[in-house]
Design a protein around this nucleic acid. Structure first.
Lengths: 152, 152
DNA sequence: GTTTTTGCAAAGCTTTTGCAATCCG
DNA sequence: CGGATTGCAAAAGCTTTGCAAAAAC
């Protein structure tokens, strides 16, 4: 559930090799364009021409995360979910606790607050985590709230 | 690292029995007045007149959390840390990634942003998670940054 | 005297790691 | 070829759960 702060990024670091597995992971991330857990990714890939090992999925995600290509979120169970980050910078999201679907929200106010608070505090390398969860209009009609935040 | 949103709280629910163990847990939480992990709590209690089992610590924390008495945060390792919530409502914190110490920050701007964003979205029961991390002035001089956010 | 709570050990989950086999360049 | 990468299974953590013994009211 935590949309990542603008990391003091390690962008531009050695990219590693381009393997079929890594490409496959990126492709799925692009395709769904919503938050997915490592395990879900692994399952989707399992039904593919090129199944990818769970460990590799995790490793690839960690890499993409470090490179600043992903927004990351943690649900109440502690599971991490990943979503492709737009090229023009990180986003914050409003995530439905019932169906798991996410939408980016306007967050300039928080960005400014975070920047200002960090600056005034005298702390170095201040990062922020901000996220919103709720029940979307559709789910409010249809389903009961799931405790974990949905979207296995 | 997530400072909890103003829960659609379950306050005022049956409080359960008052046992020596639960009192002990609350006492430690009051004493340190900073974020502590369940395991750290358990260790502190271990050296006491009344050691408390780890499972009991977890159960007590879960209860206090549900009752809205705690602010909760998750570090990068996924470990949860708990801190007594002031009586007048939840806070957001700036936490030092090196030493783990936390200080509440002024957060009216975020509160308003969250409220407004939730209202405009049409989502129900919107909750927010907001937190800041950085390196405090003292640690900037003294120690190197720890990867996990400190305070074992 | 019931009902709740405790404690221990075992189980559950997600994520990480060791290492031989494999692949990329 | 040589070093990076994959996969599997095992290991690591944190947290939860089952169940008999103990405590609370």
């Amino acid at each position: 559930m935590n949309a990542l702060a603008p990391r003091p990024v390690e962008r531009g670091r050695p990219a590693g090799r381009t393997t079929r597995q890594r490409s496959a992971v990126r492709r799925v991330l692009d395709d769904c364009a919503d938050f997915v857990s490592a395990q879900a990714l692994h399952e989707r890939l399992a039904t593919t021409d090129l199944p990818v090992g769970l460990a590799t999925v995790y490793r690839t995600l960690r890499e993409l995360e470090r490179a600043g290509h992903l927004d990351v979120v943690r649900d109440k169970t502690g599971e991490r979910r990943y979503r492709k980050r737009p090229d023009d910078g990180h986003r914050h999201y409003l995530i439905c606790r019932a169906c798991g679907r996410s939408r980016p929200v306007e967050s300039q106010a928080v960005e400014e607050w975070a920047e200002r608070t960090g600056r005034l505090s005298g702390y170095a390398a201040v990062e922020h985590i901000v996220e919103l969860t709720g029940i979307c209009t559709r789910c409010r009609r249809d389903k009961p709230e799931r405790p974990d935040g949905g979207h296995g």
